[in-house]
Amino acid sequence: MKKTLLLATLGVALTGTASAYAEEINVYSYRQPELLKPLTDAFEAETGIKTNVLFAKQGLVDRVVSEGENSPADVLLTVDIGRLDAAKQAGVWQPIPQEITADIPQQYVDPDGAWAALSLRARVFYVSKDRVEEENLSYADLADPKWKGRVCTRSGQHVYSIGLIASQIANNGEEATKEWLEDVRDNLARKPTGNDRAQVKAIYSGECDIAIGNTYYMGKMLTNETEPEQKDWAASVRLVYPDAEQSKTHVNISGVVLAKHAPNAEAGQKFIDFLLSEEAQSIYAESNFEFPVLPGVEASDLVASWGELKADDLALSEIADKRDEASKLVDEVKFDEGPQN
């Protein structure tokens, strides 16, 4: 009921008073409005197209499905390849023109044009500055007995974890990934719990020495003025790109879908084109501490200080195809129950 009321309230922005703008687009977003505001402000200033944003933490794909041909959604923004693939499977998309996505690496574009990446986030290690000397580590190292009782992570069923496990299946096969997942489980310092920031806090408190998390959380913590204790957590760790020597660091994406029944499809295409421009990609880099998906656009100075990202070139569509297998493996090995021996 609360979610329904929230969406209904937010929906007023899409159906309310008349606008002074000649054109408008309606954006359904899983990304928080404050993260999008620098981008939507710049887009409006450049094009004169008004951007209405409806935000919710969940349920937007289902909403578009239920609205059917009457949906006001022009563009859907979300994070994680699984959520983008869910939008594709639900049939709420129309192809993004290839000329819009031609300049970004094609492993970050759906083969059918159902979605395209807007930014990258790497799944990396946070390691204790005081207790971990290793500079070069791999995802395989998490299974090494030397790390027994020293590893922290969030739930294996979280979308970020499923993406990493799915990439392991795509690269190494299901059986090898199952064995790896069992060994990682038994190296955990505790049952998987909390978000990525909580893993950094656990290292700070001495509960573990190495944790798995997304790169941009480090930027958010190091610059957090409202909760300055997070700066202390972040200062206790350094960031390691796993499998960097093999150019195999796992990346996930934030991405965009052009809605199937978009009433303002042409304006929606202009918005996607803008989000893939140098200007917007620089805003992603500076505001959100994410990696630009457009070649030639630099990461922020803070992100660059962590070293060079050498991303796995595995197509994100292949990771999407392995997500169900990954989820089944997590349950099969009882990963979220923590160490078994």
Rank of each mutant, 00 (worst) to 15 (best):
K2P: 10
A8R: 09
L10V: 09
L14T: 05
T15L: 13
G16Y: 04
T17Q: 13
A20W: 07
Y21C: 06
A22R: 10
Y28Q: 10
S29C: 06
L35D: 05
L36I: 10
T40L: 05
D41T: 14
E46W: 01
I49F: 09
K50S: 05
N52R: 15
F55R: 05
R63I: 03
V64Y: 01
G68R: 07
N70H: 12
D74Y: 13
D74V: 11
L76E: 05
V79D: 10
D80M: 11
R83H: 08
L84Q: 12
L84G: 11
A86S: 14
G91L: 09
I96W: 10
P97K: 14
P97T: 14
T101W: 11
I104Q: 08
I104D: 09
Q106E: 13
Q107N: 15
Y108A: 03
V109S: 10
G113W: 13
S119M: 07
F125W: 01
S128L: 09
S128M: 11
D130H: 09
R131V: 02
R131M: 06
R131Q: 12
V132I: 15
E134Q: 15
A140Q: 12
P145D: 07
W147N: 07
R150G: 05
C152G: 15
T153D: 02
R154I: 00
G156L: 08
G156Q: 05
G163W: 00
I165E: 07
I165Q: 07
A166E: 08
N172F: 02
E175N: 14
W180T: 01
V184T: 07
R185G: 00
N187I: 04
A189Y: 02
P192S: 04
Q199E: 13
I203Q: 03
I203D: 02
G206M: 10
E207H: 10
C208N: 06
G213A: 11
M218S: 12
G219L: 05
K220V: 10
M221V: 01
E227M: 10
E227A: 13
P228H: 02
P228T: 08
D232G: 01
S236I: 07
A244T: 08
A244S: 14
Q246V: 02
S254V: 12
G255W: 02
K260I: 08
D273C: 07
L276Y: 05
S277Q: 05
Q281I: 00
Q281H: 00
I283P: 01
S287N: 13
N288A: 14
N288M: 14
F291Y: 15
S300Q: 04
V303I: 15
A304R: 15
W306P: 01
W306C: 03
I319T: 15
L329I: 08
L329N: 04
D331F: 12
F335T: 04
F335H: 06
P339W: 03
